[in-house]
Design a protein around this nucleic acid. Structure first.
Lengths: 123, 123
DNA sequence: CACGATTTGTCCGTATGTATC
DNA sequence: GGATACATACGGACAAATCGT
């Protein structure tokens, strides 16, 4: 499974494995992954490496941590279409958690969506 | 500076401080921050906490690490305007490094930009 | 409502590898 | 080659949130 002598970092190898397991449907939206401790034992890794791997998947929007509970697989359905009309603007705000798409309409109102849940369309 | 008894985590307090110092112009685009070791000594924190703080700023697109060199302040100029015409689509791709805005034109060609460097405009 | 078990969040120390200057 | 700096990885510890009993 994980090769300590491989060129690729251990936490990246683990991220690859977990990503594949999720893609294979082993875990569905809302499901919890095995605990960090369980993953560490199973793959013989320190918790540091396990958390680094989960951090990678988190950055990809695949999973998110719930304190006191575990790591939950995010719901990734079809991106929701959002139309950008004349005068509308959209930017991506980085920072807290998942990047957010902020749409500013002509009248000054704003809408906000998790960046990986929308597809912006011109009109 | 940093209060070990504060409610806020140490690495978040450090992130706040460094963010402020950057905003104040103490470091400009292309400048290097003090090394992780130096920051740890100055603020009396373990390197773990220092790296966590830098990770926060990295996620905000403020700085990026350069192996063997140090942490460099990113160039954050005016976001570049990108027009979305009829049939054009834009999505945000998460994963490797900074999130990327991917624009797919009607003719099938695609353009890609770091997510915090563009402002999408409807037509 | 109280309590314990589980799980993630934060923090420390240490060590080694690798890239840059 | 040597010095510096980030990348990765291990170990241990305690706090805080959640959930079932």
């Amino acid at each position: 499974m994980i090769d300590p002598h491989a060129d690729r970092a251990l936490f990246r190898q683990l991220a690859d494995l977990l990503r594949d397991r999720i893609a294979a449907g082993e875990f569905e939206a809302g499901d919890q992954l095995p605990s960090e401790a369980a993953l560490g034992q199973h793959y013989d890794l320190a918790r540091t490496a396990v958390r680094a791997a989960l951090g990678v998947l988190r950055g990809e929007g695949l999973v998110e941590p719930v304190r006191g509970l575990g790591w939950v697989v995010r719901d990734r359905g079809e991106p929701r279409p959002v139309r950008l009309r004349r005068g509308d603007e959209a930017t991506v705000r980085l920072g807290e958690g998942l990047p957010q798409v902020v749409v500013t309409r002509t009248d000054g109102t704003t809408e906000q969506y998790p960046a990986d849940t929308v597809i912006l369309r011109g009109t």
